[in-house]
Amino acid sequence: MLELRLVQGSLLKKVLESVKDLVTDANFDCSATGFSLQAMDSSHVALVALLLRSEGFEHYRCDRNLSMGMNLNNMSKMLKCAGNDDIITIKADDGSDTVTFMFESPTQDKIADFEMKLMDIDSEHLGIPEAEYHAIVRMPSAEFARICKDLSSIGDTVVISVTKEGVKFSTRGDIGTANIVCRQNTSVDKPEESTIIEMNEPVSLTFALRYMNSFTKATPLANSVTISLSSELPVVVEYKIAEMGYIRFYLAPKIED
């Protein structure tokens, strides 16, 4: 038996909107730790890892570890029927081939339940090692989204370079080139508006903008985004989900032929 009650149901709606275009089908894993997902896109270029910790739910009952295969597009269709202020409860019985999403309006005057068919998904779980990154950039998530959107109108790839000068996002295309440099800026009053660059050593990597733009669909989840870069690893683009966990996107770099 599984019963997870999330008072801030809009978080789950936002999570789905941020992953449904990247991943078609995925297993949601439920354990004492929380509600999680790890999935790759169909071409194995990007990986998404989501964790919503059990403590973040108002009520969290998960009698035994359960993996529920869901079509994310269908799940999104159902969650779109929940109001932004609704409380969402996810329910499943042991051995059942369905999951139920219950939506309660804040005033309890409307209660809806949507039952969705589960699916069997053969998914490969990957081990993501703890790593030291050459550079970690934290910046406003809206600023990062704007940069990715702007650069994708010029080129298909972005070179992200971190030096002591700052972080530079560059692209080139048929019509020309573009460079955007963001410098460390901690003087602003609000910490979520600051740009913080931790650099152990300079790093420069090239990524497909199509994926970066897809990751920025998670922007409504967090004011800040953290970009961790290492020349030996996929980049990690992380959005913290307030008091609950995170959504992390890993993207393999372009490699010189």
Binding site: H44, I128, P129, T157, A252, D257
Partner: peptide, 14 residues
């Protein structure tokens, strides 16, 4: 020219 890297060449199945 560059080619697209693959997640599976960085992270191993567990």
């Amino acid at each position: 020219d560059s080619k697209q890297g693959n997640i599976l060449s960085f992270f191993k199945k567990v």
